[in-house]
Design a protein around this nucleic acid. Structure first.
Length: 480
RNA sequence: CGGGGAGUGGCGCAGCUUGGUAGCGCAUCUGGUUUGGGACCAGAGGGUCGCAGGUUCAAAUCCUGUCUCCCCGACCA
């Protein structure tokens, strides 16, 4: 049995569900998997670029049949897009868990009451979608959850022994932007991971801040993204310490300035001890100049050597805040300490734009033919292209390859359609699966199939067995 | 929220100035020829021209209002 394993923590690599593991370990030796045929899947691709989409990620998401716009800034996630969204979400979840954060789930709809307590009900303005229920009670579709979680904490936690606490959830949010744009990158409805920390003192709160800071570096690295922490404005969330995590992209929404050496720092790695001292890792990433345009300091930037100056455009994919007692004070989230008496807890909040990242990934990984997914987030791991459906040996070869890949823990998509070869190639390139296995009577006569690497375009003829082994090898290497 | 643009078969567009039978490409369906980089021939189906008023014998076309979407800016994960 050949199961790709993460070299760092020995977990099975990708796509191997609990059930699959159960069966491969305990079940019958001859396990047959359901074959996901393209003819059965739902993949409404477009040959032409929709007129409304202006940036490449939005165009490709529509063309690849990942999303459909329902209203300005509101999207349905079609099966292909949904798979990527889930992959991104799962990486975020795993790294939150690894950092010691605890997952929960709060509702999308919140009572206005909560926001009156913090004073933000009026302050938030038209960006907040306000609604009334049948009893004429004022409700809102949550743009964020500081109030709700602070209230939960205040309700249950009274003692200094209850802290530190670090809780997160991954939930849909709504901000009624005046001008949604860039597809899912700046929608009104968006999926976000938001974490909230509760600590006794500012000093402790910084430790929580550092946990998230380091977790973020690993999170983005696992998706193949280079995200750089930059000093940032605290905005309506408030507070006095904040970093945005930025990926560089031509279509980035904001201008950023930083020291070139920052771009070369590797991710801390998945073996970081999150209960240990993380300050050094954070210091290393914050020592060099890096700021978004809002807080850009020309004088400080001038001190950076000319050949190290980088000014570029970037997409914000995450942000971390420390804001002290801004919410705990008015909402009475206090704990009692033997020496300090009753004190409001020091808080921070930590967001990652999950749905936004899907767009960001495409901005980072595309070419003229379409999307090029990093293996960790690809909707399927590999595409199997049948060049002559109906031809017995070809069908048989495709299905065998499918079963073998599936058995190895990979998730293939089998193009069994009767489309012409050109259409199949184009479609597969468009949706960007990292690897393709092209199976036709012509090659099979010679005992070979063709393995194509989407990113490099490189192709090689291999026996079906070697092709499967090659694909599995590539996926093992991908994991950080 | 300021400024600009656009709504016509599923998608991309023409028609509007100068009112008169709604058109093209792609996609779809049928038949045939093709068959390893988004084929070809022949035929077919599919549109209350965003919506509501108005002008007129007659409105996709002119007038008024309204809704929606997109772009630039201000604002934000």
């Amino acid at each position: 049995m050949c199961v790709p394993v993460c070299p760092v923590d020995n977990r099975p690599a990708s796509g191997l569900s609990v059930w699959a593991r159960y069966w491969t370990e305990t079940g019958p030796k001859l396990r047959v998997y359901y074959i996901m045929r393209l003819s059965r899947f739902f993949l409404p691709t477009l040959k032409e670029t929709p007129a409304d989409a202006k940036i490449v990620s939005h165009q490709l998401m529509l063309r690849a049949g990942m999303v459909r716009q329902e209203s300005a800034g509101i999207y349905s996630w079609l099966p292909l897009g949904f798979r990527v969204l889930k992959k991104v979400e799962q990486i975020v979840r795993e790294e939150q868990d690894r950092a010691g954060a605890v997952e929960m789930l709060m509702p999308t709809i919140q009572p206005a009451e909560l926001w009156r307590e913090s004073g933000r009900y009026d302050a938030y303005g038209d960006e907040m979608l306000r609604i009334r229920d049948r009893h004429d009670r004022e409700m809102l579709y949550g743009p964020t959850n500081e109030e709700m979680l602070t209230s939960i904490f205040a309700n249950f936690c009274r003692s200094y022994k209850e802290v530190p606490k670090l809780l997160y959830h991954i939930q849909w949010k709504f901000r009624d932007e005046t001008r949604p744009r860039f597809g899912v990158m700046r929608g009104r409805e968006f999926l976000m991971k938001d974490a909230y920390s509760f600590d006794l003192t500012k000093e402790d709160a910084i430790k929580s801040y550092n946990r998230m800071f380091v977790a973020y570096l690993n999170t983005f690295a696992r998706m193949g993204l280079k995200a750089f922490p930059m000093k940032a404005e605290t905005g309506p969330i408030g507070g006095d310490l904040s970093h945005e995590f930025i990926i560089l992209a031509e279509n980035g929404e904001s201008e950023v300035f930083c020291h070139r050496d920052l771009l070369d720092l590797p991710a801390p790695g998945l073996d970081v001890d999150f209960d240990g001292d993380l300050q050094e890792i954070v210091n290393e990433r914050t020592a060099l100049y890096a700021a978004t345009e809002d807080v850009h300091d020309e004088a400080a930037f001038a001190a950076v050597p000319d050949d190290k100056k980088v000014s570029a455009r970037g997409i914000e994919v995450g942000q971390v805040f420390y804001f002290g007692t801004k919410y705990s004070e008015p909402m009475k989230a206090r704990v009692t300490h033997p020496d300090m008496g009753e004190v409001p807890v020091h808080m921070g909040s930590y967001g990652i734009g999950v749905s936004r990242i899907v767009g960001g990934l495409i901005e980072a990984f595309n070419d003229d033919a379409g999307i090029i997914w990093p293996r960790s987030v690809a909707p399927f791991d590999v595409g199997i292209l049948n060049m002559r459906p109906g031809d017995e040996p070809t069908d048989q070869a495709c299905e065998t390859i499918y079963q073998q890949l599936k058995k190895a823990g990979l998730d293939p998509l089998y193009d069994d359609t009767k489309d012409r070869a050109g259409a199949k190639f184009s479609k597969m390139d468009l949706i960007g699966l990292p690897d393709q296995i092209i199976v036709g009577p012509r090659g099979l006569k010679e005992g070979t199939v063709e393995v194509k690497d989407r990113a490099s375009g490189e192709r090689q003829d291999l026996s079906p067995q070697d092709a499967v082994a090659e694909i599995i090898k590539r996926h093992q290497q991908e994991i950080i």
